[in-house]
Design a protein around this nucleic acid. Structure first.
Lengths: 137, 137
DNA sequence: ACAATAGTCAACCAGTTGGTTTAATATTTC
DNA sequence: GAAATATTAAACCAACTGGTTGACTATTGT
């Protein structure tokens, strides 16, 4: 119970990850990084923003564990680090049933109809009505 | 190109959804709602927080399209509304390959081993690989 | 040695956030 | 009609956000 509460609510990772993802500039940076490694200036140029501004965004992403940086001389290379994205997706997966429920319900209804029609096309046990068969998929 | 840019970056829904999800209290409220409908006070009580405070959180969730409310007399009932969660998951799915890459690599290695062992255990017809099947999933 | 380049840091700013408290608006109950 | 209940509204607060600028630290190229 208390454990459940901890698992469910004490998740500082998710705070940071979802916050990082809530900004369109940062999502764009991640998208850029999904094509491959980039330096800070490379990441900054597409945005109408000072280098320092972009640098701050990248630091937020780094803080959320979404970006890794390795320095080589004076240039900083950034890489996408996906593990935390996977954690976020895992959280969302818990709620997946709420947007698949209708499909699941429909499937269950159709399956039930099939069972009924199967019974019907046999010896018609009492209390069962015949139904048209229907494929589930 | 411009269209691509729009699809990728002009997504005010995601801003609001990810921001809503970045707060642990709000995630807890959503979790609560996943068990069924609840009133504002019911949602507020578990938290060490004023009713007005909780009310504000719920308004944020509503603004992000994650919660629907229907008023009945003086009590407001809240329901989870999952469509926007699905949108968020859809966004994350774009990056899925970055945490499945290693598994994919492993799979490719196993498939290659299969091809190699198949060639070895036959009479080696030129250019043809005998597939000893290994399940992909 | 000097200038250009890559990036951070610190200070600042207006706007937002997460919270409070107190008051106000309905609705229901006695 | 008065009291209790369910909720929002408004004003306030400290902390944080996303952005700027200007100064600073390194590193690289000439």
């Amino acid at each position: 119970m208390i454990l459940n509460h901890m698992v469910e609510f004490q998740t500082p990772h998710l705070d940071a990850v979802f916050h990082a993802l809530s900004d369109p500039t940062r999502r764009a940076i991640l998208h850029r990084l999904s094509e491959g490694e980039h330096t800070i200036s490379e990441l900054a140029t597409p945005f109408n923003m000072s280098l320092a501004g972009a640098s701050k965004h990248i630091k937020v992403l780094e803080g959320a564990g979404l970006v890794r940086r390795h320095v080589q001389g004076r240039t900083h290379f950034c890489q996408l680090e996906a593990a935390r994205l996977a954690e976020a997706q895992q959280w969302l997966r818990t709620y997946e049933r709420f947007w698949t429920t209708r499909l699941d319900d429909l499937e269950e209804i159709l399956r039930e109809e099939d069972r009924a029609s199967a019974r019907a096309s046999e010896q018609l046990p009492p209390g069962q009505s015949a139904k048209k068969s229907r494929s589930t998929k």
